[in-house]
Amino acid sequence: MVKNTTIFTLLQNFISQEEIDGILAEFSFEDTARKCDVPTLLNYLVGAATFEWKSLRYAADVATEKGLKSVDYSTLSKRLGELNYLIVKRIFELIVSRLNRAARRKLKLKKELMAIDSTTITVGKNRLPWALYHGERSGIKLHVSFTNHTGMPLQVVETTGLKNDGPIGVKLEDKRFVLVADRAYFSIDKADCYATTKQDFVIRLKDNIQLNRKKSLKRTSVAGSNIVADFTCTLGTSQNKQRNATVLLSLPIMKAPLYVLSQIFVM
Rank of each mutant, 00 (worst) to 15 (best):
V2F: 15
F8Q: 00
L10M: 11
E18W: 05
E19F: 10
I20M: 01
I20N: 03
I23K: 07
E26G: 01
A33C: 11
K35L: 13
C36E: 08
L45N: 06
G47S: 06
A48G: 09
A48V: 08
T50H: 13
W53N: 04
W53H: 07
W53S: 10
A60F: 01
V62G: 02
V62P: 01
A63C: 04
V71C: 00
Y73A: 12
S74F: 01
S74D: 09
S74P: 06
L76Q: 06
K78H: 12
L80R: 02
E82F: 12
E82Y: 13
N84E: 15
Y85A: 08
K89Q: 13
R90Q: 11
L99K: 01
A102L: 11
K108M: 12
L109K: 12
L109S: 07
L109V: 05
E112Y: 10
S118D: 08
T120I: 15
K125Y: 13
K125P: 05
P129G: 05
A131W: 03
G139L: 05
G139F: 01
I140A: 07
V144W: 08
T147V: 14
H149V: 11
G151S: 05
M152F: 14
P153S: 07
Q155T: 08
V157T: 04
T159L: 09
T160Q: 11
G161P: 01
D165L: 02
P167I: 09
I168Y: 06
G169L: 08
G169K: 00
V170D: 14
K171V: 05
D174V: 03
K175V: 15
F177C: 07
A184V: 01
S187R: 03
D189K: 13
D189L: 02
D189N: 13
D192R: 09
C193H: 15
Y194I: 03
A195R: 10
T196W: 13
Q199G: 06
Q199S: 04
V202S: 02
I203D: 03
I203Y: 10
R204M: 00
K206M: 07
K206A: 09
N212D: 06
K214V: 15
R219D: 08
T220Y: 00
S221M: 12
V222E: 04
A229Y: 02
F231G: 02
C233P: 07
T234P: 04
L235N: 01
Q239G: 14
Q239F: 13
Q242L: 14
R243N: 14
N244Y: 12
P257E: 00
L258N: 13
V260T: 12
M267I: 15
